[in-house]
């Protein structure tokens, strides 16, 4: 195993981890704030991918189509939230079953509308090539995905740490009742966070398409990884989601390359260890 092996897998792992962050950031904030375990978060990603690839097939610009995928997903997510989910904050079992139901409906909906054949998605023109440095090869699109995800992470961190809305959200994660007692309309914060989570996951769908491609059932494959990220990073922590995503992405890439027959094992051993010795996750608050 030469240098190329490590570079290739490191970069692939970081790119995949970046995509996981787009899903897990919403997952962890939605859980931290509303105590809703949103099993439909990866279905949002899948829906975004299909909406995006359809628009691209009709000649829409790749980036515009990604944003449109995010927007469609956000509208659908908010409809589900407003009509059903908002009643079940902190009701883990009900919200879990509800979001699982919506994940299945979305999955079957995708199958009905787009069929069951996997769709490969080409990177946007201009990013389809590779950068060669000596004997090392870096696919441009992977680098682009990493850059985009880090930019989105930076925007999220800024919003959470430097704006009044962020202060309201962090306060509500700490102590929702007290935040209400100080005049915070916590329901509005919930709405904004759910919208942002759905939008970013949907946006990630087409962005990740050239790496994950799109097919019914993809969401079910990503869900365990996204939850591993949230557990490793700590529920409700954006920093945890970022670090956890990159860690899980790297472990996933190297695990699959080195022990392909044990790929789930290599991911869930660290998860099990974290749960045993640091149940709040790397950046979570004490349980």
């Amino acid at each position: 195993m030469g240098l190329q092996f490590y570079v290739q897998n490191a970069l692939g792992g970081l790119a995949y981890g970046s995509l996981l962050f787009l899903i897990a950031s919403g997952l962890t904030l939605i859980f931290g704030l509303m105590r809703i375990i949103n099993l439909a978060q990866t279905a949002f990603y899948l829906l975004g991918a299909y909406v995006g690839l359809t628009l691209v097939a009709h000649g829409t610009n790749f980036w515009l189509a990604s944003v449109a995928g995010g927007a469609v997903t956000m509208v659908l997510g908010l409809a589900v939230y407003s009509a059903f989910l908002h009643r079940y904050h902190a009701d883990h079992l009900t919200s879990l079953l509800l979001t699982l139901g919506f994940a299945l409906i979305l999955d079957d909906g995708v199958l009905a509308v787009w069929g069951g054949d996997p769709r490969s998605i080409a990177p946007p023109p201009g990013l389809a090539g590779s950068i060669h440095i000596g004997t090392l090869v870096f696919p441009e699109y992977w680098l682009a995905v990493i850059a985009i995800s880090f930019t989105i992470a930076a925007v999220l961190f800024f919003a959470l740490q430097r704006t009044m809305l962020g202060v309201m959200i962090r306060a509500s994660v700490d102590d929702e009742e007290m935040a209400r007692g100080l005049g915070v309309d916590v329901n509005r914060a919930f709405f904004v966070v759910f919208a942002a989570g759905a939008f970013i996951a949907g946006l990630g769908g087409l962005l990740g398409g050239p790496i994950t491609s799109a097919y019914p059932g993809l969401d079910g494959e990503i869900t365990p990884l996204a939850f591993a990220v949230v557990i490793v990073g700590g529920m409700g922590s954006l920093t945890g989601a970022l670090v956890g995503s990159l860690l899980i992405g790297l472990v996933n890439a190297f695990g699959k390359a080195m022990f392909p027959e044990l790929s789930y094992f290599t991911i869930f051993v660290p998860v099990a260890l974290i749960m045993a010795f640091r149940p709040q996750g790397l950046f979570g608050r004490k349980l």
Partner: peptide
């Protein structure tokens, strides 16, 4: 205004952010 039992200062907020949140109304 409420000064609650146990104080309930938000641990993830700085002193200034705690105060600014109080000024939200």
């Amino acid at each position: 205004g409420l000064v609650p039992q146990g104080r309930r200062v938000f641990p993830s907020l700085t002193v200034e952010e705690n105060l600014r949140l109080g000024g939200l109304p």
